[in-house]
């Protein structure tokens, strides 16, 4: 069965299920929070930007925090819903004996959730960038932002691969949801951790795509901490390399799980 037909089928299965509504709510709530934070923007005397570009980059680092929180939980929640559809009532049997390929099913479910995760990431980026552009009027450093977006997509691949593997392997969906909890936690605290920590765990790769960070300049005469914003240069070669490895791992996982007994 070709992919487009398989997508059509998957969509049909989601009838009466409010699947996309779930995604929408999971995206809109934090997005509203972001917009609320961005409703005003003013330059604080305690934060020093070397260039206007850095304002965009620092804002990007803020949204990466939010995305790091949301995306792993979203991955686990959404893939759990899709996989549980088949885990219930031994529907895998129904599909496999009708000659629907496990690999096609796996790919379609993966791509559906991946697409939604990408959409969320994109919406966050666009919202932040355009709001800032509205306020600052400064040119948007598209190239670097785009690269970081692709880097985050790599992190999404990693997160979703692990979540999907767990959702298929374990009948009990609590497992994948708890994994989502941990994944989100690790992704969230990774920016605070040293680099090697982020490289070690797949969920740390969200933090590796942050474009700017703050460095303390010490306390001023008024006793308040001063900060300088410095640019970060993600190691995209490494990030993309590991992401590619995870794509290979995904395929291997798909092959291995297709052989299990139903």
């Amino acid at each position: 069965m070709n992919l487009s037909k398989a997508f059509n089928l998957e969509l049909y299965k989601l009838k009466h299920k409010y699947f996309f509504l779930s995604w929408l709510l999971l995206t809109v709530a934090p997005l509203a929070y972001l917009l609320y934070n961005l409703r005003t923007f003013s330059f604080s005397p305690h934060i020093h930007y070397a260039s206007v570009e850095l304002v965009y980059f620092y804002e990007q680092s803020e949204i990466v925090w939010l995305l790091a929180l949301i995306l792993p939980v979203m991955a686990s929640l959404l893939i759990s819903k899709l996989i549980d559809l088949e885990n219930k009532n031994e529907n895998w049997r129904l599909l496999i004996t009708a000659n629907e390929d496990f690999k096609t099913l796996w790919s379609v479910k993966f791509l559906t959730v991946f697409f939604l995760m990408e959409l969320t990431t994109l919406l966050f980026y666009l919202t932040a960038v355009f709001r800032l552009h509205q306020i600052l009027g400064a040119p948007i450093p598209v190239g670097k932002l785009l690269l970081s977006f692709i880097g985050l997509s790599g992190a999404n691949v990693m997160t979703l691969t692990i979540a999907q593997g767990l959702a298929v392997f374990y009948r009990n969906q609590a497992v994948v949801l708890i994994e989502g909890l941990f994944a989100s936690f690790i992704a969230l605290i990774s920016p605070l951790m040293p680099r090697w920590f982020c490289y070690l765990l797949p969920w740390g790769y969200y933090a590796l795509n942050i474009l700017a960070t703050n460095e303390s300049l010490g306390r001023g005469s008024d006793g308040i901490m001063n900060w300088k914003i410095i640019e970060l240069y993600p190691n995209y070669v490494l990030i993309f390399g590991v992401a590619l490895l995870f794509i290979a791992a995904n395929v291997a996982l798909m092959r291995a799980l297709s052989k299990r007994e139903i």
């Binding site: 779930s22 709510l25 999971l26 709530a29 929070y33 929640l77 759990s80 949801l177």
Partner: peptide, 19 residues
């Protein structure tokens, strides 16, 4: 009846709570 839906709501609730 769904296992995951209330957890999704909880997650959104966290944001609303923070707000």
């Amino acid at each position: 009846k769904s296992f995951t839906a209330p957890i999704g709501i909880c997650f959104i609730g966290c944001f609303v709570g923070l707000f």
